[in-house]
Structure formats: structure tokens, C-alpha cells
Design a protein around this nucleic acid. Structure first.
Length: 818
RNA sequence: GCGGGAGUGAUGGAACUGGUAGACAUACAGCACUUAAAAUGCUGAGGCGCAAGCCGUGCGGGUUCGAGUCCCGCCUCCCGCACCA
């Protein structure tokens, strides 16, 4: 073993060893306990960033730890290869998106290998491979035939100058990012998947997913947003048809003082045709992006239509307004406004001088005060005719029943969740496998014509998708009638690819089926790791896809990911790393300077995985220092030759103390690394152990060296998942012929943990006043007496009366005196 | 705006079930080694105070023998909001 720690040499050696021995290539071995560990695959943007390094190190540590537990562990890697950045790069550098993407993948694959992650590369794929998206297209045609995929119009951001659809991200302060033009809303036909058919299952299953953070489950529950309410119809003076609204608060019905229509509501449209003022207002509303955050933060604006609705209970006339804050995508696109008890309605009413009528009083009997804001709690009804005096819940039942009896309203379960729009008017995505035939309409592409391949050798100028300018590509014949027809030129949302890649890793080489028996062997994923920013969309779509694939008979699991770990962001100077802020740290440079182990160690040491991680160059330096320290300790020990066998009975007190520290560390690290995933504290524990071993460095007695050997082996085994290269070398140096990657996780020797005396702290009135040593088996009375006799405790209680003594066994005594 | 989180020394963080606040590390200071520096090893250290001690976990209240941890009300920052991935 070398005197100096030389990461560049030992890391290349270890990686060659794993490579030559195909260490991480796994096969299905029936009867063996499996563990499928998956980190969210990256978008191939060019090079790895620190968020990737952190994510993939967490996954690799879990993978290697599970391997040391003897499980058959799968850890694959692939590429989320479709998406907007490739199109932007193509415009900037005049390189086809496919070429740019594949070059990036090659570069990033090299970086991942350099970091020593234990992936089974034989399963690798990119989502832009036709052999992958073929099956996505195949499944879509099945969903279409089942009625789970359908076409409808939907609103998009439209850049009137560039004549193109914009992503929400491309709308900056209401303007197109390239043209600077004010963005407009436009309705175009789009493909949708009926995720709302699965809303109840997606929601209810959240209660039975203990391996997911409660935080993420709460976000998904709120996103799905199931509510119980009433849909009721308001008659409109002088018109045949009624105006349908959905409310979760029928108990506030007597407080309705106006109606609100979305600018996109059919009634609004009809009125706009004959009323220029309304048309102008709608046009003004349309000069805005579609993002919900934009809509929700816009200044509330409205226009009285002049129509009057009729209150179903009082017969009173209620003005009908168009309001820009009413969402066409939720409920029926119209609301009954109760400004006294809904904050948005309150703000609108205040602005336009509409009446605010309190009809709910606080349950504690106070007067409702709605002068400064709406009173949104439930309570007791007032000013509500026959219903006055009922609680909100009683009135809900009574009013809903009354409406239902008269055929005016109906109880209804509603969801905030909308169907998933999967069409994108972009080039770099999987083509939607539909042929539009003038005779037959929409016809799914037959299986034997799949995949519909995306042409990759294209000129990309950014003015819309090249597919729309490629008649040689989109002109085709109808599979049904054989007549001339055109392919769909929209491509899929990239969430489509990331919604099932985890399953495809089980059988990526199968070109005859989407999934096979091997999916049954590996799925569901035991541990999924990725950024908290994916808490809702990606994770909800993947759950939906899993259920769809299950219902297609492709797999049996109900849920895709048994355990989920959401890692926090990597920050620099308190802010998210970004090119625009100029605060990025390039992992590549750090690996070259310190080696992969140091980078991995720091990423795991600086913070627990769920928290954000503040990057620190000097912290990295500290990690490097620790590895050198460990190296030198092993070097110093092994230079004296093989260590003698341990004889537990023959240890000195000091050796026994050292050995206790060894086993306390194993116990702590097993908890921290194996169960809690607080790798930072696990590493800190080993650092403490190494500090302790340094203090025992001069004990070159037989048993001193035996304890040192045991301590070093424990340290190396515990650190092996985190810094695998150095541990690979140190394990050999400690005299082992097997590789540490195949070694078993260390076991705690309970006998080594026993102590004769314990230190107990003593408080007086909750403040620390002293500590006492007591025999480990001391009785409560003896501890109490010892605590009261402690001189400093005496000083604080001598002029007081002891009222109570609280003894927390093995820890603390609190004397209450006054 | 709505939904979900987070605030602890100079810094990253620890304190797992309500029981010694600040483990471990960084930065800093001192000592040893060195012609010197770096590297390495050892030591010190929350603030105030000579000390006894007092104060201290974003802010204001509360529960408790005891609160960073539980409850109520605020403030600030971060993540998501359906076409970024």
C-alpha cells in the first residue's frame, strides 16, 4: 500500500475491477430477496450538475448498502432524452437535436462512470430511442381504443409574433421570451389521457403508502383536490337555458350576491358576439398566459353582462358578471359568488361595490364581521330563511336535499385534477401515433407500423416544429380505407416517457413486448430517489401509468414506488445553483482535483438528504482531509504486519473503551445509513471513531493491534457504500481477499456495549447543575440519593424544599424545589 | 393568490420518542514539527462575565418538573402550480 492517498490511481483500479467482474450486472434469481433502487434519470443537458451528483450518490449508497445485506440489487440508469432544451440548443448551434442529445449522453455517461456509481449499464436506454418510444406509442393506441385517450380543445400560450405555442416557462412577465410580444391565449385541439378516471384510486391509495413522505402525499391529495359539493342551476331572466355552478358551500346560498363567468365560458362567448364591450373585455382577458400562478395573482377584473340570474330560494335577481379569476378548467366555469364567505369573491365585490351579505356566524355565537375580509370558516346560519340556526353541516344536507328534490341541483364529487394534456406542438418528442383521415377520422397507427419514427436529420430554425413542414413524413395512407391521410404532427409530453421508464429497465432488451415477466420480478421499485420538485406532476403521472399498465395486464403492481426519498436542492451562497446567477460548481473539476470519493463524501456529509445542501469548497477540502487521515491510519497499522486475533477477555480498560466505541459506531451507523438515511450523522459517527482510533495509535500491544484491526475494518465496511474506491483498496490492505463490495455489513457485538457505570446529569428546576456516576444497575432510590447529595445540587436546594424528584432512567434526574 | 416545506454558533449541520443545545465538520486562534511556508498532529472556542452565574434555537404568547422539539398568532426564505425537466 502506498504511503500517500492517491485517488486518481485507486479510483481507476476499483472501477476497472467492477467493470471486469461485471459487478453490477444483475440477473433474475428466483427465491433471492430483491432490491430495486432507482434514482430519477437525468435530462442529458450536457454535463452533470451537483444536484445529479447528490441524487445519484444517495442512490448508490443505498444500492451498495443493500448489496452488503445480501440482496439481489438492481440499479439501472438511462436518459430522459426528449425535451425543449435540445431544440433551443439546435437553434443556437445549428446542430440537430438528436445529435446534440446523443453527444451529451456520451459525455454524461463518462462522468457517471467516473463517479463510481454501481449501475447495471447493460440495461441503459434513452427515451429518444425508437425501441423505447415504440412501446409508448403502442400503449397509447390501446388507451385510445379503450376511450382513455381522447381529443379536445385546450388553451395554450400563443406568441403572436413568432406564431408558435409557448411553454409556461417561456412566458416571462406575460411576454414571449424570444419575441417579447404580449402572450395571448389560444384554443387548439389536443390529446388528453383520462387520469381523472383514476382520481379516486390515486387519492385513496395515498393513505396506504407508508414509504412515501407525508409531505408529498399531502401535496398530491391537495392536487387531486376531491371535494363534495352541489352542482346547481340558476335560471336567467329572459333566457331558456340555466347557468350551472358548482359549490362546496351550499350552506352559504343565501349570501350569493353575484354570479361569475369565466371569460372562456360558452355564455360569455355568446354574449361577446353581439356585445362589443364584452368582446373587448374577453380579448383583454385573453392577453395573458395560461399558468395558474399567473391567473391567481392577476388583479381581479370583471364586467357586468347586464344579465340577471334568479336566486332559487329567494327569487331575488342577481347580477351576472364576467370575472377573470373564474377558471374554466374547474367545475363548470361559472361560480355563485358569496363575498361574505369567500376571500376571492370578497375582493371582487369590494372592488366593484357589490353587496356583501353575511349568512354564516361563528359557531361560538359571535357576530360575523366581514368588513375587513371574508369569514371562511363553517359556523351557524343567519339571515337564511328557514335554514337560519342550522350549523353549516346541517344546512349543507338540508339545502342540497331541497335543491335535489326540485331538480335544481345535485350532489356532486368534484376534482381539482384535470385530464392530462399530452400533446405538444414541438419536434423533439415521440410522435403521437395517430393518422388523420378525411374519411375515417382519427385512426390509431396499427401495431405492425410502429414505431412511428421521428426523423432525426432535420434543419431546425425554431419557427414551429419541422414535422409540420415535412410532407414526406406526414403524408401517408389511412390504415383503414387506404386513402390519402396525414400523420399527427404533435408529439408527446415528455412526462409520458418518464412515467414508465422504471418498468422498462426490467426488460429493456425485449423488442417483442413492452414488458415481460422480468417486470414482475423486479417491480415495484423498492426505493425511488429524486428531487422534491417532482413531488406532484412526475410522481402522479407515473402512479397513473402504473395503474394503466396494470389494467392492461402488463404488470401486477398497483403502485410504482414503494419507498420514496425526496432530496433537497443544492445551493451555493444560499441560492439555487444556476448559470444566470453564476454560482455553479462543476463536479467534474472537483473529481479531477480530489477524486470521486471526496465529492461523494461531501455530498453525503454536508446535510441530510431531504434538506437543501449548502455547497462549501472548504467543506470538500475537509472531506478530502478525512480520507487522507483514514488512509494514513490504515497505512500505519498494516505496516506493522498482520494483526493478532482478538481476545475479548484479555483487554485492558482502555482497549475495552476503544472497542465499545467501535461497536457503538456500528450500531449508530447501521441506524443512520440503513434505516434513517441520515448519512451525514452516520459519517460523523465514523469520524468520531477514527478520532478515537488515532488516540489508540500508540498501543502496539497484541490486543491493542487486534482492537485497531476490528475498528478499521468496521470503519471501512461502514464507509464502503459512500466512498467505495478508497474502501476497495483499504479492505485489501487490511488483509482480505474478497472485494469489499461483496462483504457483509458489520454486526454489533452486544457484549462490547456493556458499561459498569453510567453518567447521569442532575437538574434543579430544569437547569443543569451537576452530574453523577452511578452503577449501571443502580436502583431509582440510590440514583435519587446520589443526585441530592451532589455538592452543586446541594448548593441550589439547601434553602429550599424538595417537592418532587423526576428520574429518567440512564439519563437524567430533575429535582423540583422551591 | 393557492398548496407543501424550512429558519439552531462566524459557516454547514447535530440533538431519532418532550430530557445535558451546539455532536461531526468548516472557518478561526494557539502549540508542536519546519530555515520558512504548506501539509500533518495536538489543544481551544455559543454570547456576556474575573468568577459564581446569567442569557441563548426567526419573532410574540402558551402548555409542562423540563420545550429547538408540542399548541396559538406573526415574520422571512425555499419548492410546486398542470407546455421546464
Amino acid at each position: 500500500m502506498d504511503d500517500a492517498y492517491k485517488p486518481e490511481i485507486i479510483e481507476a483500479d476499483a472501477q476497472r475491477f467492477w467493470d471486469e467482474n461485471r459487478t453490477f450486472q444483475v440477473t433474475e434469481e428466483p427465491g433471492r430477496e430483491t432490491f430495486y433502487c432507482l434514482s430519477m434519470f437525468p435530462y442529458p443537458s450536457g454535463k452533470l450538475h451537483m444536484g445529479h451528483v447528490r441524487n445519484y450518490t444517495i442512490g448508490d449508497v443505498m444500492t451498495r448498502y443493500q448489496r452488503m445485506q445480501g440482496r439481489n440489487v438492481l440499479q439501472p440508469m438511462g436518459w430522459d432524452a426528449f425535451g425543449l432544451p435540445a431544440e433551443n440548443a439546435a437553434m443556437q448551434n445549428n446542430v440537430p437535436p438528436a445529435q446534440w442529445t446523443r453527444e451529451n449522453i456520451a459525455a454524461m455517461r463518462g462522468q457517471l462512470k467516473q463517479l463510481g456509481f454501481g449501475y447495471d449499464w447493460s440495461r441503459e436506454f434513452a427515451t429518444c430511442d425508437p425501441s423505447y418510444y415504440k412501446w409508448e406509442q403502442w400503449l397509447f393506441t390501446r388507451l385510445y381504443r379503450k376511450g382513455l385517450a381522447y381529443r379536445a380543445v385546450a388553451t395554450v400560450n400563443w406568441d403572436p409574433v413568432d406564431q408558435t405555442v409557448l411553454a409556461n416557462e417561456q412566458v416571462v412577465d406575460g411576454k414571449g421570451w424570444r419575441s417579447g410580444a404580449t402572450v395571448e391565449r389560444r384554443e387548439i385541439p389536443q390529446w388528453f389521457l383520462r387520469i381523472t378516471d383514476y382520481a379516486d384510486e390515486l387519492l385513496d391509495a395515498l393513505d396506504d403508502m407508508p414509504g412515501w413522505p407525508e409531505q408529498v402525499r399531502a401535496m398530491q391529495r391537495n392536487w387531486i383536490g376531491r371535494s363534495e359539493g352541489v352542482e346547481l342551476a340558476f335560471a336567467i331572466h329572459g333566457r331558456e337555458e340555466t347557468l350551472s355552478v358548482y359549490t362546496t358551500r351550499p350552506d352559504t346560498l343565501f349570501g350569493v350576491s353575484y354570479m361569475g363567468l369565466a371569460p372562456e365560458h360558452p355564455l360569455t362567448r355568446e354574449l361577446a358576439e353581439s356585445n362589443p364591450e364584452i368582446a373587448a373585455f374577453v380579448e383583454e382577458c385573453n392577453k395573458a398566459g395560461v399558468a395558474e400562478a399567473t391567473v391567481a395573482t392577476m388583479e381581479k377584473k370583471g364586467l357586468d353582462t347586464g344579465l340577471r340570474a334568479v336566486h332559487p330560494l329567494t327569487g331575488e335577481e342577481i347580477p351576472v358578471w364576467i370575472a377573470n379569476f373564474v377558471l374554466m378548467t374547474y367545475g363548470s366555469g361559472a361560480i355563485m359568488a358569496v363575498p361574505a364567505h369567500d376571500q376571492r369573491d370578497w375582493e371582487f365585490a369590494t372592488k366593484y361595490g357589490l353587496p356583501i351579505r353575511p349568512v354564516i356566524a361563528p359557531a361560538d355565537g359571535g357576530e360575523p364581521d366581514v368588513s375587513a375580509e371574508a369569514f371562511t370558516d363553517k359556523g351557524v346560519l343567519v339571515n337564511s330563511g328557514d335554514y337560519t340556526g342550522m350549523t353549516s353541516d346541517e344546512a349543507f344536507e338540508a339545502i342540497a336535499g331541497w335543491l335535489q328534490q326540485r331538480g335544481i341541483g345535485e350532489r356532486q364529487t368534484n376534482y381539482r385534477l384535470r385530464d392530462w394534456g399530452v400533446s405538444r406542438q414541438r419536434y423533439w418528442g415521440a410522435p403521437i401515433p395517430i393518422i388523420n383521415c378525411p374519411t375515417c377520422g382519427q385512426v390509431p397507427v396499427p401495431d405492425d407500423q410502429l414505431p412511428v419514427e421521428l426523423p432525426e436529420d432535420v434543419q431546425f430554425d425554431g419557427a414551429g416544429s419541422p414535422l409540420k413542414q415535412m410532407p414526406e413524413w406526414y403524408r401517408t395512407t389511412c390504415p383503414q380505407c387506404g386513402g390519402a391521410a396525414e400523420r399527427e404532427t404533435d408529439t408527446f409530453d415528455t412526462f409520458m416517457e418518464s412515467s414508465w421508464y422504471f418498468a422498462r429497465f426490467a426488460c429493456a432488451d425485449n423488442d417483442g413486448a413492452m414488458l415481460d415477466d422480468r417486470a414482475g420480478y423486479w417491480l415495484p421499485v423498492d426505493q425511488y430517489i429524486g428531487g422534491i420538485e417532482h413531488a406532484i406532476l412526475h410522481l402522479l403521472y407515473a402512479r397513473f401509468y402504473q395503474k394503466v399498465m396494470r389494467d392492461e395486464g402488463l404488470t401486477i403492481a398497483d403502485e410504482p414506488f414503494t419507498n420514496l426519498l425526496t432530496q433537497g436542492m443544492v445551493l451555493k451562497d444560499g441560492a439555487k445553483m444556476s448559470k444566470s446567477k453564476g454560482n455553479t460548481v462543476d463536479p467534474q473539476a472537483l473529481v479531477e482535483r480530489y477524486g470521486a470519493d471526496t465529492v461523494r463524501l461531501f455530498a453525503m456529509f454536508a446535510a441530510p438528504p431531504e434538506q437543501s445542501l449548502e455547497w462549501s469548497d472548504s467543506g470538500v477540502e475537509g472531506g478530502y482531509r478525512f480520507l487522507k487521515r483514514l488512509w494514513h491510519l490504515v497505512r500505519n497499522h498494516t505496516a506493522q504486519g498482520a494483526a493478532p486475533a482478538l481476545d475479548v477477555a484479555g483487554l485492558t480498560d482502555a482497549q475495552r473503551d476503544t472497542r465499545r466505541k467501535v461497536h457503538e459506531t456500528i450500531r449508530k451507523a447501521s441506524e443512520d445509513i440503513g434505516r434513517r438515511f441520515t448519512f451525514n450523522t452516520g459519517i460523523a459517527g465514523v469520524m468520531e471513531l477514527v478520532n478515537t482510533l488515532y488516540k489508540a495509535i500508540d498501543d502496539d500491544s497484541e490486543q491493542g493491534r487486534a482492537v485497531m484491526q476490528e475498528g478499521l475494518e468496521a470503519s471501512v465496511l461502514i464507509l464502503a457504500p459512500i466512498v467505495p474506491h478508497i474502501c476497495h483498496r483499504l479492505w485489501q490492505a487490511l488483509g482480505h481477499d474478497d472485494a469489499v463490495v461483496d462483504a457483509a455489513w458489520p454486526q454489533v457485538d452486544a457484549d462490547a456495549l456493556t458499561q459498569d457505570t453510567l453518567e447521569i446529569v442532575v437538574q434543579v428546576n430544569g437547569k443543569l447543575r451537576g452530574n453523577i456516576q452511578v452503577p449501571a444497575d443502580a436502583e431509582r432510590d440510590a440514583i435519587e440519593t446520589a443526585a441530592l447529595d451532589e455538592p452543586n445540587v446541594q448548593r441550589f436546594i439547601s434553602d429550599k424544599t424538595v417537592r418532587k424528584v423526576i428520574v429518567v432512567p440512564g439519563k437524567l434526574v430533575n429535582v423540583v424545589a422551591n
